[in-house]
Amino acid sequence: MAVNDVSFSLNEGELLSIVGANGAGKTSVLNAIMGLVRVHSGRILFNGVDITHLEPWKRAHMGISIVPEGARPFADMSVMENLEVAAMNVAKAEAKRRMEWVFELFPRLAERKKQPAKTLSGGEKQMLAIARALVGSPRLIIMDEVSLGLMPRLVNEMFKIIEKLKQEKLTILLAEQNTKKALQVADKVCVMQNGSIVLEGKPQDLLDSEEIKKAYLGI
């Protein structure tokens, strides 16, 4: 999806939700920020630095991590090996601390440290994708459709984790089709339609308008 007229800012410690129907352009925006698709006009600034044309690995070194749509772990590697790869550029003591932290967040992953990622359930793969992003000590974590394909119980579990990360003052950019859940955790919201941002504001401000809820939020 080609996107245009997309402009927003995210402050440290905030959670911004980008919501909209499938095909609205949410993933394209996230991939552009991570450097996975080329930006033809405009700029992307991170901590005041223009990263518009930086390679993805350089953005990762600057502290940007992504939880991609569909999780996509390294299938033939174990849970632990997936995490160790993600922590390669983190100081040893800090990596150890963060490993312990993510296993506290995701006890099921701790039980499956030696299992190949391809043997995990869909929910467990999503947990691994989030854990993998977290062990890299990110300054910004980008999450793309974390609830996609999960049963309602696991969706609730994922958003409880996001709430915990928010309490840790992590800076989070979340693209999500589940508008209701996305608004519940957000500090601010951008609504996308046909490749553009058509609305933005505080979640409650959007929810207070019946017209907006029906026209754009599917509520």
Score class of each variant (00 low, 15 high):
A133C: 04
I130H: 06
D187M: 09
P73F: 06
N178F: 08
S196T: 14
V79T: 12
I142D: 02
A93H: 04
G63N: 10
S28Y: 11
E100A: 15
P107M: 15
L109K: 05
G20A: 05
G136C: 02
L207T: 09
E210C: 11
K202S: 11
S147C: 10
D5W: 01
A60E: 04
V85K: 06
T27K: 10
L170A: 11
N178C: 09
A175S: 13
C190R: 07
R139V: 02
I18R: 08
M127G: 15
D187P: 15
K114W: 08
I197S: 00
V90A: 09
K58A: 08
S147P: 13
R108L: 08
L183M: 14
V37A: 05
E104H: 15
A131Y: 08
N11M: 03
A186M: 11
E200Y: 07
K166L: 02
H53S: 14
A186E: 04
K125P: 08
F159T: 13
H61R: 09
D5R: 07
L173G: 15
S209E: 12
S9D: 14
I51R: 02
K169L: 07
L109Q: 14
A2H: 06
E200M: 03
A2L: 06
L15Y: 09
R153D: 04
E104N: 13
L165H: 15
A117S: 11
F8K: 07
